[in-house]
């Protein structure tokens, strides 16, 4: 668990605090998104966790220990760090880049080597093909994958990610987000993720901290932020169409009505409008609009229809969260 207690950062010669009296608690194994406009203090907040920036006052605790009492190098070796520019070392191969932290941790050669393969597999890069490539031979998306693998190399409990997918094209970005969530399901790290993209925050976050001028204006779940923005600043940041965004957070599998075998038999006749369990309610709505029907069927991984989702169902789900804007 990471905890900020009344943390203030004022850069020398500045008239105002870059981070002002920040209190924040990040649960172990969750993704906390720091979101807000450029210059609101996201990066400053994040870099205080691995001591790249020292707070002017206040304390930061990791697992109950004040990080001031932890050796800086030791602390950083236990925190994965990923930045937008990747910061891959251009003179080292992909494998050598990944090996840096394990090397510092004093791992044996064999262990490092198998770790490199394991991580490249995890980020969906063929180890044989990519181990010995240099960073300048990689595409933007591949570089970020290696960045993720490198940050995970020492198996740190915490990861800091500063707009990691910000420089990628929208399609690659969406893919990286999906894959990263899939990886996180397996590795369950405590992640602090900085972004200025609200859509990304909503999609990736277990909790979202909205920052404005160095202060947290709202700290809550994505659903809560959408249904209950705490003030006009947050509403404006979300930028409307909240109901649609809420639908994108619901999975068909979670909100469908389960069908009896007899009903499944009946449904078999209509081949139109079938989605997987992991599809979002937004996908469901889009599918209804496309087919002109007020319902869609939901199927499991074996393509057996297991449930149904109808339009009234969606209406009720959204209304239950009480849209206020």
């Amino acid at each position: 668990m990471i905890r900020f207690e009344n943390v203030v950062k004022r850069y020398p010669g500045e008239a105002t605090d870059a981070v002002h009296n920040l209190n924040l608690e990040i649960e172990s194994g969750t993704i906390c998104m720091l979101v807000g406009p450029s210059g609101c203090g996201k990066t400053t907040t994040m870099k205080m966790i691995n001591k790249l920036i020292r707070p002017s006052s206040g304390a930061i605790l990791i697992g109950g220990r004040n990080i001031d009492t932890v050796d800086t190098i030791e602390l950083r070796l236990s925190i994965g760090y990923i930045i937008q520019d990747t910061g891959l070392f251009p003179h080292m191969t992909v494998g050598e880049n990944i090996a840096v932290v394990p090397g510092e941790l004093g791992w044996k050669k064999d262990r490092i080597s198998s770790r490199i393969d394991e991580l490249l597999d995890l980020v969906d890069l063929n180890p044989k093909a990519f181990r010995n490539k240099k960073p300048n031979e990689l595409s933007g998306g591949q570089k970020q994958r290696v960045g993720v693998a490198r940050a995970l190399a020492g198996d740190p409990p915490i990861m800091l990610m500063d707009e990691p997918f910000g420089a990628l094209d929208p399609i690659t970005r969406a893919r990286m987000q999906d894959e990263f969530l899939r990886i996180q399901e397996k590795i369950r790290k405590t992640i602090v993720f900085v972004t200025h993209d609200v859509e990304e925050a909503i999609k990736m976050g277990d909790t979202i901290a909205v920052l404005k001028l160095g202060q947290i204006v709202q700290l809550s779940s994505p659903m809560e932020i959408l249904s209950n923005p705490s003030d006009p600043f947050v509403s404006e940041l979300i930028g409307g169409r909240n109901s649609l965004k809420m639908l994108s957070l619901m999975r068909c599998g979670q909100i469908m009505k389960t069908l009896s075998p007899a009903e499944v038999e009946e449904a078999r006749g209509s081949p139109q409008g079938i989605l997987g369990m992991k599809a979002t309610a937004q996908d469901a709505l889009s599918e209804m609009l496309r087919t002109g029907e007020r319902f869609i069927f939901v199927e499991d991984e074996r393509h057996d229809v297991v449930g149904v989702l109808d339009f009234e169902n969606l209406l009720e789900r959204v209304n239950r969260h009480g849209i206020t804007s």
Partner: peptide, 12 residues
């Protein structure tokens, strides 16, 4: 960016 990554990773 390279230096920041190196420092952040824990290199002296």
């Amino acid at each position: 960016a390279i230096l920041e990554a190196a420092r952040g990773m824990g290199l002296t």
